[in-house]
């Protein structure tokens, strides 16, 4: 069986260079590749374009790379939780492209499925449609306008999984799955950090979310903080 294991985060990101485009998995702080983000901060690569649903918070997640001004451009759907992000964006230091969340997910999916474009109704008639080709289709008896959106082309995808095996097969846990499987499919090179790395044969093939063919490097992550953005609880009665 092919072995996709690398030693650690430093090793996994060693050839990520200035001005590259990265897909970064996670939703908010849930399911983010904590180890790789730290390794990128330490490596101090600059001018990155990051495609990620959110931009972390000021002192965690992609917020760490914003603080050090390593990100040139963010492509995201929602950035409400990050004051430093908002400051850099409004001052023009950071280039930002905001796109609908479903469009973001589906542009990853298209890349992983080898389809150059998708058509979606999201953003028709809004500023998201500016400069994009609009087509009218009739489907299931409904005639609507759709925007043509391109599959992402990214140098690297960096994702976080719950379990992975040495062949790169991945299983995600709960809502930490989010964007990770489609981003894993969409990178020219995909790096997966996992909470638990096991030998081949230890994972049930029927339970694999991302087959190892999409994953070029996998490593056992460490020291997961798994910070919760908003702890909301109810009292026992």
């Amino acid at each position: 069986m092919i072995n996709r294991v690398v030693k650690n985060a430093e090793d996994a990101v060693k050839d990520i260079k200035d001005n590259m485009t990265l897909l970064v998995g996670g939703f908010g702080l849930c399911g983010i590749p904590e180890n790789c983000i730290t390794a990128l901060v330490n490596k101090n690569v600059k001018g990155l374009t990051c495609i990620s649903n959110n931009a972390g918070v000021d002192d965690f997640g992609l917020g760490l790379l914003l603080q050090t001004k390593q990100i040139k451009k963010m492509i995201s759907s929602y950035v409400g939780e990050n004051a430093e992000f908002e400051r850099q964006m409004l001052s023009g230091e950071l280039e930002v492209e905001l796109i609908p969340q479903g469009t973001l997910a589906t542009r990853c999916l298209a890349a992983g499925y080898g389809m150059p474009v998708i058509y979606t109704p999201a953003g028709v008639g809004t500023e998201v449609a500016i400069g994009k080709s609009v087509r009218t289709f009739t489907y299931n008896g409904e005639t609507k306008e759709y925007l043509e959106e391109k599959a992402f082309e990214a140098d690297f995808a960096i994702v976080k999984a719950w379990k992975g095996d040495t062949a790169g097969n991945l299983i995600f846990r709960s809502t930490a799955r989010n964007f990770n499987p489609m981003m894993a499919m969409a990178g020219k090179i995909t790096i997966a950090e996992v909470e638990e790395l096991v030998e081949v044969g230890q994972l049930d093939p029927d339970q694999i979310h991302t087959p190892g063919i999409y994953v070029h490097r996998v490593f056992q992550g460490k020291n997961y903080e798994k910070r919760i953005e908003q702890v909301t609880v109810r009292k026992r009665v």
């Binding site: 929602y78 950035v79 609908p100 969340q101 979606t120 109704p121 999201a122 953003g123």
Partner: peptide, 12 residues
Amino acid sequence: VKGMGGAMDLVA
């Protein structure tokens, strides 16, 4: 500017 999140997909 917080972003549209999933709202544009939902309303479309």
